[in-house]
């Protein structure tokens, strides 16, 4: 599954960069965060609850920040498992200046889902994943502007 989007943030690029390069800030935007560990500045472990309606599962994720090119480009690679399923996530973020002093964030995400959810949840998976990923980025925007 591939998702992508672009949105503008009313904050300067450096501020956006500083914010998103801290695992704690990113983790706050994960759905229903249960637990967070940050063993290294570029790595964090998060336990989240995700799903649709009451169909929810607990996933243990390990995220790594890669290819950090301050303050323009970053990649976040995540690998999670739970509910008889696995999620492998690759996201990339590109930041650019806007004429009004704001920042444009272009993001891409590729998710590969395996196991139970992939095999029985086809009908819901894409919609649900799209929503989760969009919520994540919308939350980042909100936190930066708020």
């Amino acid at each position: 599954m591939h998702f992508e989007g672009t949105f503008d943030i009313k904050a300067p690029r450096q501020k956006v960069w500083d914010f998103i390069s801290i695992p704690n800030n990113v983790a706050k935007c994960l759905p229903d965060l249960q637990k967070l560990e940050v063993p290294a500045p570029d790595r964090f472990k998060a336990t989240v609850k995700a799903g649709v309606g009451f169909v929810k599962g607990t996933f243990n994720f390990e995220f790594t920040m890669l290819d950090m090119q301050p303050p323009t480009h970053a990649k976040l690679s995540g690998h999670g498992s739970g509910t008889g399923s696995t999620v492998d996530l690759e996201t990339a973020i590109d930041l650019s200046d806007l004429p009004d002093g704001g920042t444009r964030m272009a993001w891409k995400a590729d998710a590969k889902v395996g196991g139970l959810i992939a095999s029985v949840g086809q009908r819901l998976l894409e919609g649900a994943a799209q929503k989760l990923v969009s919520n994540l980025f919308a939350c980042l925007k909100k936190q930066l502007e708020g």
């Binding site: 395996g114 196991g115 992939a118 029985v120 086809q122």
Partner: peptide, 15 residues
């Protein structure tokens, strides 16, 4: 099967 991830997509009698 999903060509991309190799998952079996007909995994219950629903599919």
């Amino acid at each position: 099967y999903s060509k991309d991830t190799g998952q079996l997509l007909a995994s219950t009698f629903m599919d």
